[in-house]
Simulated scan of single mutants.
Amino acid sequence: MNTPASPAPAATDALVLVVEDEPRLAAVLCDYLRASGYRCEWIADGAQVMSAYAQRQHDLILLDVMLPHRDGISLCQELRAHSQVPIIMVTARVDEVDRLLGLQIGADDYVCKPFSPREVIARVGTVLRRYRQTPAPRAQPLQIDEPNFRAQLHGRELDLTPVEFRLLCALASSPVRIWPREQLLNHLYPDHRVVIDRTVDSHIKNLRRKLTETGGQEDPIRSVYGVGYRLDLAV
């Protein structure tokens, strides 16, 4: 691959995340991206992608399929669960594109190795223009995956007990609705054990702490005196 020959600078300072475990290839891509007016960050380990994106909210991700510790397909699927960030998949095999398309993992484009760096830059520009012309729907801060017992706030995993998870699911099922303690109790214990309504207060306290620590913002659970609780978060 040749050194970038001063391509016309792009009218953008978009931040592109290059996820590629081949250092020489990653260096070439980053050189071309910077020469075209983009900012660039490189990650070689798939296990570091989610935390990096959560911290810096890149404008586009160039994502290799084969990576150490975590593959690009599962990363693309997780990113799509809570983000509309543009993703261009990079694969070493032409027949892999058919498999990626068949999986419908939500990538915006696919590039096969070996490729021309100029072609990649052109695709980056095309995908970014497409996103700017069509505003993406706003990602909701709270994502709940009930079948897999998982919840994320602003892209960060919530470490919840089973009771806290059921409590969050109940509150999130009707955001802004005021939930009396008695109704929340019905959601907390599937075996319908007899507990006092103040038990909810203890679980609310723990859930509040975890939401504020993970989200880094003010407490999203509101107490309504003499009535119960409500969740002020979009789901």
Rank of each mutant, 00 (worst) to 15 (best):
H82G: 15
H82P: 07
W179M: 01
I121F: 01
C76M: 05
P9A: 06
C76I: 05
Y32V: 07
F115V: 08
D13F: 07
L158G: 03
Y131F: 07
S6Q: 10
L33S: 00
D13R: 13
P68V: 06
A52K: 11
P4W: 04
T3E: 15
L233M: 12
E20D: 14
V124A: 09
Q183G: 11
H154W: 07
D71V: 02
L167A: 05
V49R: 10
L29K: 00
K210R: 15
V176F: 12
W179E: 02
E20I: 08
R93F: 10
T199K: 00
C112E: 09
P117M: 05
M66S: 14
E78P: 05
P114G: 08
V16Q: 03
L185Q: 06
S202N: 00
F165E: 10
P141C: 10
A234F: 08
N2H: 12
L103R: 14
I61A: 04
H154V: 05
Q183P: 01
L17R: 11
C40P: 04
Q55I: 03
A107H: 03
S116T: 05
Y229S: 07
P141I: 14
I221N: 14
Q57K: 13
C40F: 07
A27K: 08
A92N: 08
C112A: 14
L101W: 04
L233V: 04
P86V: 06
P137S: 15
Y53V: 10
A172P: 02
D13S: 15
R39Q: 14
Y225E: 07
L29P: 00
L62F: 05
P180V: 03
R198V: 06
K210V: 12
Q183T: 02
L29G: 00
H154T: 08
C112F: 03
Q84M: 12
R99E: 13
V94Y: 12
V127R: 10
R56W: 09
V111N: 04
R56L: 08
W42L: 12
S6A: 11
Y110S: 12
G215I: 02
L25A: 15
D145W: 06
V176K: 11
N2L: 15
Y189S: 09
E20N: 11
G106P: 04
R39N: 10
A5I: 09
V235R: 01
Q143T: 13
D108A: 00
I121W: 00
R132I: 00
G102F: 04
V120H: 02
D59G: 04
D219A: 10
V19L: 13
V18H: 01
E218T: 15
I144V: 14
L188M: 07
V111Y: 05
L67I: 01
